[in-house]
């Protein structure tokens, strides 16, 4: 049911973000039919217009394609998917590093963390 939203930003943005991850990680596979606005709205406990807005964003990014009368599908264009994944990883890492920087975690800290984890 309804998840807890981060209070500081738009709900549609947060829904677009979480659906984007599900598309990029293959939880919604390439070429598959996407759930309807109404079913997502019910599942998430949000206004259908808000879901609609989130899906338009994903359509704008080329991740979803709307086929008249049939519904929405995850794109089959592997170039679109892979470049979206690269872009997503980059922006995710950027935010991780900028947060780390704020609290004084250095490159050395990262390196020793990674070597411990691997070792």
């Amino acid at each position: 049911m309804s998840w807890r939203f981060d209070p500081g930003s738009s709900v549609s943005g947060q829904i677009a973000y979480s659906l984007r991850i599900k598309i990029l990680t293959g939880e919604y596979p390439s070429g598959s039919q996407f759930p309807t606005v109404r079913s997502l709205a019910l599942e998430l406990g949000v206004n259908p217009n808000t879901v609609q807005k989130a899906l338009s964003v994903l359509e704008g990014e080329g991740l979803l394609e709307s086929r008249t009368t049939v519904g929405r599908f995850v794109t089959e264009d592997s170039d679109v998917l892979s470049s979206a994944l690269t872009a997503f990883k980059k922006s995710f890492l950027e935010s991780v590093f900028s947060k780390a920087d704020e609290i004084g975690i250095t490159k050395n800290d990262f390196e020793s963390f990674l070597s411990n984890k691997e070792g």
Binding site: S10, N47, T50
Partner: peptide
């Protein structure tokens, strides 16, 4: 608009 307002103010309506 509820969602736009959240975005503009960076706050929930509750806050």
């Amino acid at each position: 608009d509820a969602d736009e307002t959240r975005n503009t103010y960076g706050k929930s309506l509750d806050q």
